[in-house]
Amino acid sequence: MTVRDAMEILNAKVLVGEDNLDQEVKSACGSDLMSDVLAFSKDHSILLTGLCNPQVIRTAEMLDIVCLIFVRGKMPDDTILEMAKERGLVVLWTEHRMFSSCGRLYQAGLGAGAFGGAF
């Protein structure tokens, strides 16, 4: 699916990256713990999170994630959005909770992707 498809499935709003919605996305991960995202994420293109701080953007940057989705109506501040813009990330915002956001995307065919490997 594309970022635009994910946006429509979640009734999400675009906060950053309106021009980049046609990128292909193959898999996603959802977590509020950035350490766990760094530990287990591999080749994910979407990160869903309810955590709202600059480290979310940095984590996405380190992992080459293309689209961030803030769930549960969490609204990132301007600093965070500016950082996302500088890095060419797409940022979406949805009122759906984490479980239903992930569920809807999974049901629509978005995969969980490869695991980073067990410790």
Binding site: L33, A39, G116
Partner: peptide, 15 residues
């Protein structure tokens, strides 16, 4: 509360 302190830092670095 900032999303860290999950106890994955050093294991991640080694991995």
């Amino acid at each position: 509360s900032l999303g860290f302190g999950a106890g994955m830092g050093l294991p991640n670095m080694k991995k």
